[in-house]
Simulated scan of single mutants.
Amino acid sequence: MKIANETKIGILTALAITCLILGYNYLKGNDVFSNTRKFYAVYDRVEGLTVSRPVLVNGYQIGRVARLDLLPNHKIRARFDISEKLEFPKNSIAEIQSPDLLSGKVIVFKLGNSTEIAEEGFEFASGIESSLITSLNPVKDKATDALVKIDSVLTAVNNILNPEFQKSVQKSFKSVEVTMKNLEGTTVKFNTSAERLNNIMANVESITQNLNNNNDKISRVLANIDNITDQVAKANIHETLLNTSKTMATVSAIMTKIQKGEGSIGLLLNDNQLYNNLNKTAADLDKLMVDFRLNPKRYVHFSMFGKKPSQYTTPDTVVIKN
Rank of each mutant, 00 (worst) to 15 (best):
I207A: 09
K167T: 06
E184P: 01
S172T: 10
E164G: 01
E164L: 03
M201Q: 14
K174R: 12
E184H: 09
I160M: 10
K167G: 03
K167V: 03
T192D: 14
I207S: 10
E164H: 02
I150S: 06
E177D: 15
N203S: 13
T179R: 11
S152H: 04
E195L: 08
N199K: 12
F173D: 06
R196D: 14
F165W: 07
N182D: 08
V204H: 06
V176D: 09
N159A: 05
S152M: 04
M201R: 11
F173M: 12
E177N: 14
L197Q: 12
A202N: 13
A194Y: 08
L197P: 00
K171R: 10
T186R: 14
E177Q: 14
V157T: 11
L197N: 13
I160N: 06
P163Q: 05
N191D: 11
D151M: 05
S206A: 10
N159K: 08
S168C: 04
N199M: 09
M180S: 10
T192R: 07
F173L: 14
E184V: 02
D151G: 05
E205G: 11
Q170A: 14
V176R: 14
G185P: 01
S152A: 13
T187S: 15
A156E: 04
K189P: 01
K174Q: 13
K149L: 06
